[in-house]
């Protein structure tokens, strides 16, 4: 920007560069290394990748951890469970979030700002406590059971907690703002004249929605879906608090392999596979985003 800053540029670039290499890239490389190491008892609980002994230099590398994971339906199922949880809740968030974002964006500016603040409040408040709120609500003695008994729909409290439906509910609830806010960001920039123009040219409201509004909010849909899908794949807290033993998820498996089984190589291999599995949806999202993110001016 300014010629005199040239010397300062050096640390301007390299401070964050170095930081990210050291604390982001190296750790990732490290779990890759551990994922192809042989596990053993001790501290650290894996054999060094390279060793020198009387027999000379030796590489103790193995693909065994990966083979182990992918030959055990237990792990494969947990991946699939996580992906299907992420997919289901992304779709639900979109279905619930789109109309809300649409109507908030189309409100009068005075009301819109108040509604926007009301959307941001849950976004800011503690994630953990919002999950906890559902734990309270879904209890056997919780308020939803009480209401259902009161209106006579059920006679005995039913167990709503500790199953994968509760997990989906919790995920949709906590991640909904992540879907609504980017959608809102695109819809609020939306030129309302385009809707009028489409109507004027003979398109009925439904056609206007499908042919004009939906394609123009696609970047918002993609951004929102990405913000929900990706973190939900690795989600640990919600399944732990609201879920039961009916379905196990990838995040919890890593946690347990590490903290409970203390099997670092397996945990690392799980994490590496998780990254690989996530790379595909991310690339798809990025391509869609790039394709439809034309300038709206």
């Amino acid at each position: 920007m300014i010629k005199n800053l040239k010397k300062q540029n050096v640390w301007f670039v390299f401070t964050p560069y170095l930081w990210l290499v050291l604390f982001f890239f190296v750790p990732l490389a490290l779990i890759f290394k551990i994922s192809i190491s042989v596990s053993e008892w001790g501290m650290p609980p894996y054999r060094d990748l390279f060793s020198f002994s009387e027999n000379g230099f030796k590489i103790n590398s193995t693909l065994g951890n990966y083979l182990f994971i992918f030959s055990d339906p237990f792990y494969i199922r947990s991946y699939l469970n996580s992906l299907s949880l992420a997919f289901t809740s992304t779709v639900l968030c979109l279905l619930i979030g789109y109309p809300i974002a649409f109507y908030v964006a189309k409100s009068k500016p005075s009301i819109r700002n108040i509604l926007l603040i009301m959307l941001i409040i849950p976004f800011w408040s503690s994630f953990l406590l919002r999950v906890y709120a559902w734990k309270v609500l879904l209890q056997g003695s919780g308020i939803i059971n009480s209401i259902l008994i009161h209106i006579g729909l059920i006679s005995e409290p039913i167990s709503m907690l500790h199953n994968h439906y509760a997990v989906i509910l919790g995920v949709v609830y906590t991640y909904l703002p992540f879907m609504i806010l980017p959608l809102y960001g695109y819809l609020v920039k939306f030129d309302l004249n385009l809707i009028d123009a489409s109507n004027d040219l003979g398109a009925k409201p439904l056609n206007t929605f499908v042919k004009v509004i939906l394609p123009l909010s696609l970047p918002g849909i993609v951004a929102g879906s990405m913000l929900v899908f990706i973190p939900v794949v690795g989600e640990y807290i919600i399944p732990e608090m609201l879920g039961g033993s009916d379905k196990l998820y990838f995040g919890k498996i890593i946690w347990d392999e590490f903290f409970v089984n203390r099997d670092w190589p397996i945990a690392s291999a799980l994490a590496m596979s998780g990254i690989v599995i996530l790379v595909f949806p991310i690339i798809i999202f990025q391509l869609m985003y790039a394709k439809y993110n034309f300038k709206n001016e």
């Binding site: 750790p27 990732l28 973190p231 640990y236």
Partner: peptide, 27 residues
């Protein structure tokens, strides 16, 4: 590579981030 480094943490599941950092600190 710099762009990759500065945007990847956005899409990295926290559980993997946490695990990798812990293993890094121990090593």
């Amino acid at each position: 590579f710099f762009i990759f480094l500065s945007s990847s943490p956005l899409v990295m599941p926290e559980i993997i981030l946490g695990l990798s950092l812990l293993l890094f600190f121990i090593s």
